[in-house]
């Protein structure tokens, strides 16, 4: 478990970094937190000719909230984001999801942008980007472009970062008022990649009815899967809640199960994973609904 020989550069600026990436082309890999790349190197599953270490790019170590967006720089560690009160207040899904990302020592080192670029369909942050329809800023010597979440994930461990490009930041919208979110997952051990996970976003209409319900799924396909479940949440509203006691998202759970085709692996059969997707859809929507209700309550005069 020793990596093969590779070249190594440690640029001091984004400009320097992208020119190094341009020079090295597809043979170069960006090293940020190293929580996925280093094991891949040590297992010789990846053998890039050159590593561009961006850990000196202090200009990318930021989390900011402005103009209705949370912006996370490429060198912000998971814990920097998790401990940023403005960011998690503006988009509570960030806090809910990051608490489920591995363990504190990994969150101290791993970067949120890195985990999104790594495009692991079992990763929480990929689902967050997909559900929130955020975007990734990609910079190269030729200029920059903004990749939308919808187009960003190409396959397992494959994102739309092209040779010569550096993902400098991820942009996520704030959670609108009248909306709520929740993240729930089942993992074999605390901090493991989820066997199945669901991030949900519920929006309430003027009468307290569910006007929008969407969910993103982890570990059920090659890329994060987002489903619009609004049609299955027709009966749920703050009014119906008053009589029923608990919101009924069973129909949404059934819809999700019908739409998803998860695979099996050594930890779960496809049937169990599909069943979990149904259970967790209900739980996540109920959580997001409660969150939306709580926020609506708090925003009352």
């Amino acid at each position: 478990m020793k990596p093969p020989t590779f070249g190594y550069s440690r640029p001091e600026s984004v400009a320097q970094a992208v020119s190094l990436l341009a020079a090295r082309g597809p043979d170069a890999k960006v090293l940020a937190g190293g929580q996925s790349l280093m094991p891949l190197l040590n297992l010789r599953l990846a053998a890039p000719g050159h590593l561009v270490d961006i850990n000196r790019l202090a200009e990318l170590a930021y989390v900011s909230v402005s103009g209705g967006q949370v912006t996370i720089g490429a060198l912000a560690r998971h814990n920097d984001v998790l401990r940023d009160p403005l960011a998690v207040a503006a988009q509570p899904l960030l806090g809910q999801a990051l608490a489920l990302v591995a363990h504190p020592v990994i969150r101290n080192r791993g970067t949120t942008v890195g985990s999104i670029v790594h495009a692991d369909p079992a990763g929480e942050m990929t689902a967050v980007l997909a559900l929130l329809e955020g975007s990734v800023r990609l910079v190269s010597v030729a200029g920059e472009r903004l990749a939308s979440a919808e187009d960003f994930f190409l396959g397992p461990l494959e994102s739309d970062v092209r040779a010569g490009e550096l993902a400098t930041e991820v942009l996520l919208p704030e959670l609108p008022s009248g909306a709520g979110c929740a993240f729930t997952e089942v993992s074999r051990r605390h901090g493991d990649y989820a066997v199945c996970g669901v991030a949900a976003l519920v929006e309430l209409g003027p009468q307290g009815e569910v006007s929008g319900a969407r969910a993103a799924y982890l570990s059920v396909g090659p890329v994060p899967v987002v489903l619009d479940l609004t049609e299955a949440c027709g009966g749920v509203s703050l009014v119906s809640l008053a009589t029923a006691g608990t919101p009924d998202f069973a129909q949404a759970g059934r819809l999700a199960m019908a739409r998803l085709q998860p695979g099996d692996d050594i930890h779960a059969t496809a049937a169990y994973r599909r069943h979990l997707a149904g259970v967790l859809t209900e739980r996540a929507l109920a959580g997001a609904f409660a969150h939306a209700r709580e926020r609506a309550w708090l925003s009352l005069p």
Partner: peptide, 8 residues
């Protein structure tokens, strides 16, 4: 026995 086994 895993949760998946128990489910099955």
């Amino acid at each position: 026995i895993s949760p998946s086994d128990l489910f099955e």
